[in-house]
Write a protein that binds this DNA or RNA. Structure first.
Length: 251
DNA sequence: AAAGAGAGCAACCGCTGTAGC
DNA sequence: AGCTACAGCGGTTGCTCTCTT
């Protein structure tokens, strides 16, 4: 099948979003929702492709996004869930209200991978390139007023959306817990990706709306299939009984 | 003070699954 | 049944900031 490139049209803007673009996107979605991402930028008057709009909304502008440092509990949960689910960031994000798959992926790659796998020696230098191009500094998302169509969370405010809050090395790792996690990782059965592809193929049965609406994103969609899939339930039970997932919230 | 390297995050790319026709 | 369009996902890259030399 031949699929047209997302941003094939000339004149479509790329790169960091400006506050004006953010404002337009937020205002449009508040008024009309985002039923059709492809048509959205055109209707909203944005020179962006629908994909870019969707990414910007889901990863940055969505009002229920919790920004700022990950708590110790969140980090532990990510490690546990990663042991269970692998690189299924969207599934992991579904268990962490207010966190996006992209954010979790970044945190994993920059902090938690080392913590979970201290033998990891991957060097980023191999992908290092000269930084010649000048790009607009990424801007913090604008705050969104209460929407008539969505129930925005009460704690959403501009003060909690400064992306700079996320940066910096504020991770105070507990050495004892680190060792504990290392041990538990070794004890886990090694499962290849094909297993999870099969076991989690039911992911697709989760209604899309549950993941894209504010209410749905705050719920835990994983619960919808974990209880309805015997095989998945079996493996979940195995992991639970291994004792490594005790601190997970109930499904 | 300047240059280089590393860290971190936002955004893009390309593939896959699914629904509609 | 096959094709197409679309949304979503995971991997990767580009760029800025901070730290080190």
């Amino acid at each position: 099948m031949v699929r047209a490139p997302c941003c094939e049209k000339m004149g479509l803007k790329r790169g960091p979003w400006t506050p004006e673009e953010d404002e337009i996107l937020v205002a449009y979605i508040q008024s009309y929702g985002h039923g059709n991402w492809r048509a959205l930028p055109k209707q909203a008057g944005l020179l962006r492709c629908g994909k870019s709009c969707r990414l910007r909304w889901t990863n940055y502008l969505r009002p229920d996004i919790k920004r700022g440092n990950f708590t110790r509990e969140e980090e532990d949960m990510i490690i546990n869930l990663h042991e269970m689910l692998g690189n299924r960031w969207s599934a992991i994000a579904a268990r962490l209200p207010g966190r996006t798959d992209n954010e979790i992926k970044n945190v994993w790659n920059t902090h938690l991978k080392k913590r979970a796998d201290p033998n990891h020696t991957e060097s980023k230098s191999k992908r290092r390139t000269k930084c010649k191009k000048k790009a607009t500094k990424s801007v913090a998302p604008i705050s969104a007023p209460a929407s008539p169509t969505h129930s925005f969370s009460d704690d959403f405010s501009s003060s909690a959306t400064d992306s700079s809050v996320v940066t910096g090395d504020n991770y105070n790792y507990n050495a004892a817990l680190k060792e504990e996690k290392m041990e538990s990782v070794e004890e886990l059965p090694q499962l290849d990706d094909s297993f999870w592809s099969e076991a989690l193929s039911i992911d697709n049965s989760v209604p899309t709306n549950d993941l894209t609406t504010f209410e749905g994103s705050l719920a835990a969609p994983i619960s919808a299939y974990s209880a309805s899939n015997d095989e998945m339930g079996y493996w979940l039970r195995i992991f639970m009984e291994s004792g490594d997932l005790q601190d997970l919230p109930p499904l």
